[in-house]
Design a protein around this nucleic acid. Structure first.
Length: 270
DNA sequence: AGCTCATGGCGAG
DNA sequence: TCGCCCTGAGCTG
């Protein structure tokens, strides 16, 4: 589930469900019981996200810092709490809403200084109005690493994961193996602008849809498709299948430990 | 029942 | 670059 759009969406959902309330906080699975007790019944002020990090501000300068990692989930429901299902590390609950956290990479109670330290390590987030894309560009220009690795590096820019990197590279027709220092300013500008446009759609829908209207199944006379990861995409997890634009086989290769997908014919730009 | 894989990220070597 | 952490779904047998 979790690229930056998911975390920003969750921040909004938590805000809507809990801001102005004093939720009960518990740890049904037990591991987070101590911290849960520390904020149990404390006023929930707001939820926010920076890149893939989620912060819940409680009264008294106590901040719940959550990172979902690869397999973590946070389910927010506007219903009366039901008995927990599965390994629920942390639960926030009122009579009308419940949020269940499972499998997080990070779940800890911190103060404002630690929040600042986390944010200081992150590159600009396309979902934040205060983001400065030039900070990312400077690092990209200095690097010989492939642009597909740089897009995933949260210190370069934050919030992009394996789906958005593959799709943004495709939409900009950029060769994923282009070293950062050889990437053109034009390509970077296009990819950043594309993320700024695409990711809010992901926040709104909860899915990653990247296929332009002229390439949709209806426009191309293809059968409609529903991926297990949600939206309609060009190359992500479509290895060996024909490229929607040129028909060449979509290629895949492990890059920095993650599966990269791209079209060798469409993506030739630097 | 047991394996593999997943939209992440860390630390050891 | 590799192994590892966390959980659950979707295979295989």
């Amino acid at each position: 589930m979790p690229e930056g759009h998911t975390l920003h969406r969750l921040a909004g959902a938590l805000d809507a469900a809990f801001a102005g309330t004093r939720p009960r906080v518990s740890s049904p699975q037990g591991r987070f019981a101590e911290s849960a007790a520390l904020i149990d019944g404390t006023a929930f002020l707001s939820g926010s996200a920076h890149g893939k990090h989620l912060f819940c501000d409680f009264a008294g300068d106590r901040v719940l810092h959550i990172h979902l990692g690869l397999i973590g989930k946070l389910r927010v429901e506007r219903t009366a709490p039901q008995p927990p299902r599965g390994e629920i590390r942390l639960r926030l609950a009122t009579d009308e809403a419940v949020a269940d956290l499972s499998g997080p990479q990070i779940c800890r109670l911190v103060g404002p200084a630690e929040v600042s330290a986390v944010i200081a390590e992150l590159g600009p987030d396309p979902l934040r109005a205060d983001a400065d894309p030039d900070l990312a560009w400077r690092r990209i220009q200095r690097s010989s690493r492939p642009v597909a690795a740089l897009l995933m590096d949260q210190a370069v820019l934050s919030g992009v994961g394996n789906v958005y990197r593959a799709e943004v590279l495709f939409r900009a027709r950029v060769n994923p193996f282009t070293p950062g220092k050889q990437l053109t300013r034009r390509s970077w500008t296009a990819m950043w602008a594309d993320l700024v446009e695409l990711m809010p759609l992901g926040v709104a829908s909860g899915t990653i849809d990247t296929v332009r209207p002229e390439h949709t199944p209806e426009a191309m006379g293809r059968p409609p498709r529903e991926d297990d990861h949600g939206g309609e995409v060009y190359v992500y997890r479509r290895p060996g299948m024909p490229c929607f634009v040129c028909g060449a086989k979509v290629r895949t290769e492990v890059l920095a430990g993650r599966n990269l997908f791209w079209c060798g014919r469409c993506q030739r730009r630097h």
